[in-house]
Design a protein around this nucleic acid. Structure first.
Lengths: 192, 192
DNA sequence: CTTTTTTCTTGACCTAGGTCAATGCAAACC
DNA sequence: GGTTTGCATTGACCTAGGTCAAGAAAAAAG
């Protein structure tokens, strides 16, 4: 039986099970309890990590000291500040677990080794970056072109499982509205 | 004397002037008059282009039929829908010149050939994607965390030359506000 | 130089969404 | 089991920014 990471890799390139094992050995598996800060503003990001189980938020702090959630990352997805990681320069973001989370970590060194040995995986990482880019593009467009109500509907469609897992005020922050207003949107929706 | 593209490449990797000439030969130089649509929703993006001179907007159309400007691209910058280009799948965006523009075009084929011959340039393209990603991240954060006034100030800081070159309603669209409101912001600012 | 088109400004009015404060509720902690 | 602590809801009130309509000004076209 294949692990989540192996399934994920297989969607992108065909590797033998020997190769897969070798690849997997370069990742370091870690359990991280909820509310652990994996990266904070000023740090240099030392990881690209694949999520096996759990949930993670990425956010900025605005000038009033409030969190602005940029992304939620869950099972079978990657988490990192890609540009801080690639260029080994300080980040402006925070990355923090919302649930107990199980991760497979790459460091700059192990990623380098991985790509030396298996250059076919370049494509997988390129796709990863492109997915991130796409999702930011869509989110930016959505934030400008849609009302809060519509953004909330789209969020529910895209992440149907999340509302049961994470506090509502984080969703509000992700949608770019106040927690009070999200509460009102939900009430309004119930009446229909 | 070095061309703009050569200077740009040199910031990233050191190539001999022979190599630079060879690289440059793979690009196709084109003059494009203003108001030319280079890409529209439904198309598959056939180019990554380096801008020598001119100005280009990238936008979505919202459900009311209005443009939502995602980016402006000018001299010494790249323009493309990267993920449509890389995966050769249909785009949702529009790319259109605002001024008469001079470009150096790569097609999927010539880019492939370029990277075959000069794999050192992988890094340059990776950086290009990362810059795009960063600028979307910052823009999303800014749109959520800052007022229209602040976003306008930041825009002026980041693109001091643009307001003289492009119509104001495009800037409003980029900032996510109505043209009327931008006009009011400017008036308010003059009084100070 | 005149005409047409596009862009910019201004005023009057409106609404989506924010802020603040109070209250209820649930989870986590001792 | 009580008790903090964080989360969600609700109401009253407020403001940033939108919409519509009408001119003014500038740019492009003839």
């Amino acid at each position: 039986m294949m692990s989540e990471l192996e399934l994920y890799i297989n969607q992108c390139v065909q590797l033998s099970s020997d190769e897969l094992r070798e690849v997997k050995a370069l990742f370091e598996r870690k359990m991280v309890p909820k509310k652990t800060v994996l990266l904070q503003a000023g740090d240099i990001c030392k990881f690209e990590a694949f999520i096996i189980r759990g949930c993670i938020k990425t956010y900025f702090i605005d000038k009033k000291g409030l969190e602005v959630v940029l992304t939620f990352s869950t099972e079978n997805w990657w988490v990192s500040d890609i540009s801080s990681f690639e260029n080994q320069e300080p980040t402006k973001m925070f990355i923090e677990t919302i649930e107990d989370t199980e991760l497979l970590f790459l460091t700059p060194e192990t990623k380098y080794e991985l790509l030396e040995k298996h250059p076919e995986l370049e494509k997988m990482f390129r796709l990863m970056v492109q997915h991130h880019l796409n999702s930011y593009q869509e989110r930016l467009f959505g934030n400008i072109a849609h009302t809060a109500q519509e953004r909330y509907q789209n969020f529910l469609k895209k992440f149907p499982a999340l509302p049961q897992r994470i506090p509502q005020h984080l969703i509000a922050s992700y949608l770019g509205i106040s927690p009070e207003f999200l509460s009102r949107l939900r009430k309004r929706k119930l009446k229909e």
